[in-house]
C-alpha cells in the first residue's frame, strides 16, 4: 500500500533561524516542509507521518537526534533520517549511521548536497515503502499455506531436492511432490526462482524489522 500523499521533509532544529532557513531552502525545490523545534513536538504528530524524510540537528535540547531516531523506529516509523552535525561531531554521526540513520551532513553544508541527500532519502523511503508493500502481499499468500506446506516451502527455497525433503520430514516422495505443487499454486509462483525471490523478500522484511532493536 504505497501512500499516494506527496512526501514531506520534516525539519527538527531548535535554532529558529536555522529551522526557517532550511524550510526556505527546501521549499525552493518544490518539496513540502514541516518544521519542529524539538523531538517531542514531532512525536506528537508521529501518527500522521506517512512518507518523506527527517532532517534532524544532532544536538537537540531534551531528546537528542539519536534518541528520536530510536523512538521513531520503535513506533514503526521507518522514515529515513538525515542527521545534521556540527564541526567535530563525526563520531556521534557514525553512531547514528550504525543506528540506522540514512546519512549525515556536516555543517556548513552546500545546499546542493543537502538537497541531493533529501532526494535520495525520499527515493529510499519510496523504495522501502514499495518493497514493504510487496512483502506484505507475499506474506498474505503465505498465510494460506498449511504448516506442513510452510515446512516444505522453507526447505525448497533452501535448494533441497524432493527426496531429501521427504527423508527429512519422514514423508513419502509422492506426498512431498503434492505439497510442493500446492505451495507453488498458493504462492502463485511461476517458477522455483520466483518462489525463492518471494522468500528472500520476506526474509529481508523480517530482518529489517528485527535489526533496529538488536543494534539499540
Amino acid at each position: 500500500m504505497v501512500s499516494t500523499a506527496s512526501p514531506t521533509v520534516y525539519v527538527i532544529d531548535d535554532d529558529q533561524a536555522v529551522r526557517e532557513s532550511l524550510q526556505w531552502l527546501i521549499e525552493s525545490v518544490g518539496l513540502n516542509v514541516q518544521t519542529y523545534e524539538n523531538a517531542n513536538a514531532l512525536l506528537q504528530e508521529c501518527e500522521e507521518i506517512r512518507s518523506g524524510c527527517l532532517v534532524v540537528d544532532i544536538r537537540l535540547p531534551g531528546m537528542s537526534g539519536l534518541d528520536l531516531q530510536d523512538r521513531l523506529q520503535a513506533e514503526g516509523c521507518h522514515l529515513p533520517v538525515i542527521i545534521i552535525t556540527g564541526h567535530g561531531d563525526v563520531p556521534v554521526a557514525i553512531r547514528a549511521m550504525k543506528a540506522g540513520a540514512f546519512d549525515f551532513i556536516e555543517k556548513p553544508f552546500s545546499d546542493q548536497v543537502l538537497l541531493d541527500r533529501i532526494r535520495e532519502a525520499l527515493k529510499e523511503d519510496e523504495n522501502r515503502r514499495i518493497s514493504s508493500a510487496r512483502a506484505a502481499e507475499i506474506e498474505a499468500k503465505r498465510k494460506l499455506l498449511t504448516p506442513r506446506e510452510v515446512e516444505v516451502m522453507d526447505l525448497v527455497v533452501r535448494g533441497r531436492l524432493n527426496k531429501q525433503i521427504a527423508a527429512e520430514l519422514g514423508l513419502s516422495h509422492k506426498t512431498i511432490e503434492v505439497h510442493r505443487a500446492h505451495v507453488m499454486d498458493k504462492m502463485q509462483a511461476q517458477s522455483l526462482a520466483e518462489l525463492v525471490r518471494m522468500a528472500v523478500v520476506l526474509e529481508q522484511e523480517e530482518e529489517s524489522a528485527a535489526v533496529a532493536p538488536k543494534l539499540n
Partner: peptide, 14 residues
Amino acid sequence: NQPLAAIANYVHGC
C-alpha cells in the same frame, strides 16, 4: 555555524 548556515540556506533558497 548556526547563523552562517542560516545565511547560506537563505541565499541558496533565493
